[in-house]
Amino acid sequence: MLKVENLDKTFRTGAGDVHAVRDVSFEAKDGELVAIIGASGSGKSTLLSLLGLLDAPDKGSIDLDGIELANLDSPGRTQFRSRQVGFVFQQFNLIPNLSARENVKLALEFAHWPKNDRDARAHEMLNLVGLDASKADRRPAKLSGGEQQRVAIARAFAAQPQLILADEPTGSLDKATGQKIVELLRKVANTQKATVLVVTHDEKIAKKADRRLEIDDGILKEIT
């Protein structure tokens, strides 16, 4: 269960302060798929960075299954991220000189999974996302965009994190593939009982989520 309270983040720039996230509070249950929609510059990527512990909030709290994350130091954030947070990016961000299987195993390595189990787990995850076994040893450049995003999802879920953060996961895909990817996210989230937050521009994608939140000028509100 993810519980966010009064989250605030301001960036100081030459042009003045940018209040990217303002007093954000919300909750998300295990296995729930939550869509966050908003225009460019509305603060949705900053919110995702804060929730993914890539950045520290100025104030507020992030509670994941009873553990307060907002006050963790840098090594603590890194460790927590490796085990409890998975990322899916718009540009897939797979490591280009590693195969699909090795990309998935990378997340397992950082999460300190037992070495002997990594191969089997990577195989299992690639199966789960529907990637043909014959493609497991291909490098990203030899895979289609949809296949790369499947690998990215397999990587994000591999270490069984509690929280998955997907930043425009369908942004680089055609509509049909995008729909499949969102369905895949929902399926894996249900299988692993993980909370999935999807940032998207696409209303159709957002409508597939269990809940929808809208962020505007750093202020988050629920769309009913």
């Binding site: 890539l54 991220r81 997340a107």
Partner: peptide, 16 residues
């Protein structure tokens, strides 16, 4: 740079 950012996001420590 981006790849390093991704590795860090995945939880890779600076040491690694």
């Amino acid at each position: 740079r981006r790849e390093v950012g991704v590795l860090k996001a995945l939880g890779a420590p600076n040491r690694s």
